[in-house]
């Protein structure tokens, strides 16, 4: 109940913000009858209506995970964000080992298997991508390669 209401409310606000920014779209003097504003505004309005429906007629509450599991998911998201930033400067192998290891640990909390699957995945995937699929990946930070 509450989840649907909150999400509906958030989406309604997002939709209103979307409509508001759609009205600010610059139009060129050479425009067609509809122009670049109309369609986004229609979409925003339909979105807002559906969102309000969600607030008024919510479905039963889903089974949310416990706070601890939520923590694990948030850690996973943070690790992935760090991975996204690290991939370019640090090369493929190091960040992949860490990120895959952490994800593996979050799914099944065993330290040894997590380390092994991190190492195995980074080296295995690197070999596949580099040599079988011929993608241009950098294994280590550029500064190490001289």
């Amino acid at each position: 109940m509450a989840s649907d209401r909150i999400f509906g409310l958030v989406m309604a606000i997002v939709a209103l913000a979307y409509i508001a920014s759609a009205t600010q779209i610059q139009t060129s003097f050479l425009s067609d009858p509809v122009g670049p504003k109309t369609f986004p505004i229609i979409v925003g309005v339909v979105c807002a209506i559906s969102a309000i429906f969600m607030v008024l007629k919510p479905d039963p509450e889903p089974d949310w995970p416990t706070l601890r599991t939520f923590g694990a998911i948030i850690i996973a998201v943070l690790v992935l964000i760090a991975y996204a930033y690290a991939l370019k400067p640090l090369g493929f192998l190091l960040p992949t080992t860490v990120a895959a290891g952490v994800l593996s640990f979050q799914i099944s909390p065993k330290t040894k298997t997590a380390i092994l699957s991190g190492l195995g995945l980074s080296i295995g995937l690197f070999l596949i991508f580099k040599y079988a699929l011929d993608l241009g990946l950098v294994p280590f930070p550029k500064s190490w390669m001289g």
Binding site: A99, L103, S104, I107, K110, A114, S117
Partner: peptide, 8 residues
């Protein structure tokens, strides 16, 4: 625990 990190 190998598959999903691999997919990611």
């Amino acid at each position: 625990w190998i598959l999903l990190p691999g997919v990611t």
